[in-house]
Design a protein around this nucleic acid. Structure first.
Length: 299
RNA sequence: CGCGGGGUAGAGCAACCAGGCAGCUCGUCGGGCCCAUAACCCGAAGGUUCUCGGUUCAAAUCCGAGCCCCGCAA
């Protein structure tokens, strides 16, 4: 058995954790995840997905507000991290007997940071991948152990790309750790000159700039859907575009135009998108036809 | 008590502010037109206006309480 302390918070990470457990070759001695946070309109306290998995398998859990100056109650052969969301100090990285290893959802050194999947989509990348790497004190900066590529289909959204990465990541991680233990891997230094960075997105990042082309806006949609989503100002209210696709029809820029049963919106350089599902602030989501029926007077 | 929008026919909305026959775009059903149609024409059905109470000759509309949905914020 390989012992490990696991650091993680979000869904992708929870899936990785469960895969490690199910592999039967890891002894997860401790799970570190972010504190329970208030979520939703009612501010209900909610546990992270990783915590939910840890509880399911009765693992030991700790949820420090910060790891700065924090001392782990357990140490292990490996520290394994994935989408933890907080900085892990060098002092803690060094508690691992073998190594501290991170699972990152891009082909490092590209897309270091908090939103590699979203950013790859927004930038219209044709491929991305999983990187298994050594951790050091700088974010996503350590030596690379293994990488595996996946193609990005032109219509992939965050959900699909996330699934593709999830389909290969657990096995790659498990195999890499096993090979590392057996001394089969030579860590490769990243080419730091080629590093690019991406930050965490907020709802503000989803505001549509109609000067951008239909393709650019579609890419933004692909990266930011379902969260935080893309939206436009309309009639003084927030109008979420829940589902869109590119179209070759030309309509007036920045204006939402009904055409038959379809809703079109003009973008930069004489391009356009078709809006399939939409939601106005205060309203439930509706499809284009419903929106046209109800709001044609003010379109 | 964090801020804000909303609940009206199967769907999406209007009418509410300023009380007086509940309407529009669709959908459904029937008929017509057509080589044909999701197009066009004619007609019909379909409502406890979220719930409870109050004011009034009269409440979708005004007042009070409650339930539910949603946008922001966190």
């Amino acid at each position: 058995m390989i012992s490990a302390v696991y650091f993680g918070t979000h869904h992708f990470s929870a899936h990785i954790l469960e895969s490690l457990i199910k592999s039967g070759i890891f002894d997860i001695k401790l799970v570190i995840t972010q504190p329970d946070r208030p979520v939703g309109r009612k501010k209900e306290i909610q546990a992270s997905p990783v915590k939910a998995i840890a509880q399911k398998y009765n693992l030991k859990i700790e949820q420090p507000e910060t790891l700065k100056g924090y001392a782990l109650s357990e140490s292990a052969d490996f520290n394994i991290t994935c989408q933890y969301g907080l900085i892990i100090p060098k002092a803690i990285l060094e508690t691992a007997k073998h190594a501290s290893i991170n699972v990152h959802t891009s082909l490092l050194p590209k897309y270091r940071g908090a939103s590699p999947i979203q950013s790859a989509l927004i930038n219209g990348e044709k491929e991305t991948g999983i990187t298994i790497m050594m951790m050091d004190e700088k974010m996503d900066h350590g030596d690379i152990l293994r990488q595996e590529r996946v193609n990005i289909d032109s219509n992939d959204t965050y959900a699909e790309l996330n699934e593709k990465l999830l389909a290969i990541a657990p096995q790659l991680l498990i195999q890499t750790v096993s090979d590392y233990v057996e001394g089969k891997i030579t860590p490769q230094i990243q080419n730091h000159d080629e590093a690019t960075f991406c930050k965490e997105f907020t709802r503000e990042d989803g505001k549509i700039d109609w000067n951008k082309t239909g393709e650019q806006i579609y890419n933004l949609y692909r990266g930011l859907t379902p969260w935080p989503g893309i939206w436009a100002e309309y009639d003084g209210k927030r109008l979420k575009l829940l589902e869109i696709k590119p179209t070759s029809v030309h309509v007036e820029q920045g204006k939402i135009t009904p055409q038959q049963d379809k809703l079109l919106a003009g973008c930069g350089q004489n391009t356009a998108i078709e809006i399939i599902k939409i939601q106005l602030e205060g309203k439930n989501s509706m499809n284009a036809k419903e929106f046209i029926n109800g709001f044609k007077n003010i379109l």
